[in-house]
Amino acid sequence: MLEIKNLHANIEGKEILKGIDLIVKPGEVHAIMGPNGSGKSTLASVLAGRDIFEVTDGSVSFLGKDILDLPPEDRARMGMFLGFQYPVEIPGVSMVNFMKAAINEHRKYNNLDPLSASDFLKLMREKKEIVEITSTLTNRSVNEGFSGGEKKKNEIFQMAMLDPKLAILDETDSGLDIDALRIVASGVNKLRTQHNATIVITHYQRLLDHIVPDFVHVLYKGRIVKSSGKELALELEEKGYEWIKEQY
């Protein structure tokens, strides 16, 4: 589904990613861990197509297609979803209009007619339940005035609405209390199928108690320095990142 080869990326001339290799297959959950500043969020942004990063070498293929020259919206409509570490507040754009526009852009891309108003509202209702959003989103602007937990739930809600093939969740656990973490994680688990895949980027192991990964990778200084099964996360939790830093 996703094949990253020797990916290098810069921001303002400074190299952040220094040769990433990663293969993700349908049905898999990959966790990417690592100390602060190792390049985790950069990797997520580069995959989603943020143009402040410059890819200097390597390739990324998604569903067999080289995506590095594609704008973010094309990657999204192919089925990639980025859950933001810091969801952006957009005053004046209501959640309903935002989601309606997004859903219909996806449908247009797939040669489908726009959803009817009632079908759309029905879909909203269903998907809100997955992340236990009880408030009405109708009159609320995107993320504006949302608490930290609400913002993260809103990311998973959007993911549920858009039904991506590959979800990249960037520090979805940061700033969550234990209840919100449980809700967010169970939301992600409900959306898992054998046809889609998830990359969970996290600093801590605690999220991985809820979203159990098939593979754990350690990113350090712009490279994946260690890959293993889920037991690696526990080892990191116990020993911290110092031994990684010493080794690499």
Binding site: A48, A76, V93
Partner: peptide, 13 residues
């Protein structure tokens, strides 16, 4: 930031 956020949901530039 808002532009990227919106586009990352599949909405064209």
């Amino acid at each position: 930031n808002a532009l990227f956020y919106i586009r990352s949901r599949g909405i064209v530039y």
